[in-house]
Computed example of a mutant assay.
Amino acid sequence: MDINIKITSAQLRKYAQYQILDHFLGRKRAYSMTLKNRRKFYVQLESSLKEQGPGEIIPVERRTNLSLEEFQREYVDGMKPVILEGAAKEWNCVKEWSLDYFKKLHGEDVIVMADQLKMENPYEVMTLADLIDGIHKGTGKYYRFYPLLDKHPEHILDFDYKWLRERRNRGTLFEAFQVFMGGDNTITPIHNANQCNLFTQVYGEKKWMLYHPKHTPIVDPNPVRNVYRDGPAKTESGPFDPFNPDFSGPYKLFQYIDGYSVHLKPGDVLWNPPFYWHSVKNVGNSIGVGYRWLPPAYCFKSSKLYTFLDAFATNPPIWKAYKLYKQDINLIHMAEHGQLDDYIQKRKKS
C-alpha cells in the first residue's frame, strides 16, 4: 500500500521560492518581504488539503528474502521505504552487541554527546562508558552518530559489508557507518538528511514515523547551513511529535498528510530514502546502525531544492562538512553553532 501525495508540483515550486529566500537572506528578513504572500499560500494549501480529507498512517511494508533486483526496482527506483525483515539476523553485530559489550570494549572513547531537544549549549563531551552508565540509570540520554568504524575499523567484520554495498546506488561519493545508542522512550525529533540509509536494528527495538519529501511545506523547516534539517519548534513543547500528535495551532496541517509507521526488531533492516522526514523513538534500551551513502543524481531526483541548497549554501562548506561527517556528524552541528574551534582547542590541551 502506498501513501498519497497531497501537495501539487505547483505548490512545491511556490514553496521552494520561500525556502531559497530563507536560506540566502535569513528567515526573518525573507518573512518580512513575503509575509502576505506566504499567508495566502498556506491558506490555499490548507483548503486544498482539507478537500482531500484526513491523512492516514500506514505501516511500511515488511519483506523477507527480497532479491536485490526486487529491492532496487520496487523500492530504490520508487524511492519508497521498506523493512527487510530479519535480513541481518545472522550478522555478528546482531548476535553479539549490547550496551555492556561497548562499555567493555570501547568505554574510554571520548564522544560528543548532542541533546537535540536543547536549544542552548546542546553539546557535552563525555566517555562512552559514562554515557552507557547513564542509559542504564535512566538519564534519558540518546547518543547519535557514533562513528564506530572510523574509531575501530575492525568492526566491519560484524556486518555483511558485501550485502550492504550491493544495495548502494551508482555514482556514490562517500559512505559512513553511524551507531545510535539510547534508552527507553528517548527520541530524535522530526528531521531529514540528504543521504540514503540502510538502518540495521542491532539490539532492542525502535519505532519510526516517516513523511514523504513532497510534504516538506507542512514541516516548513528553518533554513540551515548543513546537511541535516530539523523540523522547527513552533510551540513550547517542541517540534511536531508524530508519536504523540497534537494537531492544534501551527501543526494543524499534519493531520491532513499521509505517513509511514515503522517498528524495527533485532535483525531488521530499514531502507530510508534521502530527504524523507522522520522521527525515531527507542523501545527499551536500543542500538542501531545507519549505513549511509550520498548519490548526488539520486538525491537530486528526490529533492531538487535541497540538493541545490546543500551544494551551494552550506556552512561549513560542503567539502569541509563531509570531512567532518566522516569523523563525527556532531562536529558539523558544532561548527554551525560556532562551537567547533573551542572544542578542538580543548581536545588539543587535553
Score class of each variant (00 low, 15 high):
R29I: 06
E120W: 02
N226D: 11
L99T: 02
H278Y: 07
P147A: 09
E154H: 09
N197R: 08
C196R: 09
T64L: 06
T34A: 14
K137L: 10
L66V: 05
F312D: 02
N197Q: 03
Q44T: 00
D158N: 09
I329H: 13
D109C: 05
E108P: 02
L128M: 12
L105Y: 08
Y276S: 14
Q116Y: 13
T314S: 13
T216N: 13
R13M: 10
Y228W: 09
V289K: 07
I187C: 08
P242L: 00
N185A: 14
I329D: 09
F180I: 07
I3L: 15
K348Q: 10
Y161R: 12
D220Q: 09
S32V: 00
Y298R: 11
Y256D: 06
I5W: 12
P273S: 12
I5Y: 12
T200M: 13
N330D: 03
F247M: 11
L173T: 12
M209I: 06
W277T: 04
Q339T: 05
H152I: 02
L45K: 07
Y75T: 05
Y161W: 09
I287V: 08
I7N: 08
R13L: 15
L324E: 14
E61I: 04
D268C: 00
K206S: 11
N65P: 00
F312K: 04
D310P: 02
R144I: 07
I329A: 15
Y343W: 15
S47R: 14
I57M: 15
K40G: 04
Y142L: 09
R347I: 06
V179E: 09
F159Q: 04
Y161E: 12
F41Y: 15
L45H: 08
T188S: 15
Y322P: 08
V224E: 10
A114H: 10
E336I: 00
M181T: 01
L25Q: 11
C196N: 13
D184M: 03
Q327V: 09
T139L: 02
I329M: 13
L35G: 10
K137W: 00
Y256F: 14
L45C: 12
M79D: 12
P242Q: 04
K89Y: 01
D220C: 06
G338L: 04
Q44F: 02
I83Q: 10
Q17I: 05
S9R: 11
L99E: 07
P316V: 03
R168V: 02
Q17Y: 08
S9L: 07
W208T: 00
R73Q: 14
N185W: 03
R27E: 08
R170V: 03
S261L: 00
L294G: 15
L173K: 14
K206F: 01
Q178A: 10
P81C: 08
C196H: 14
M1I: 04
E124M: 11
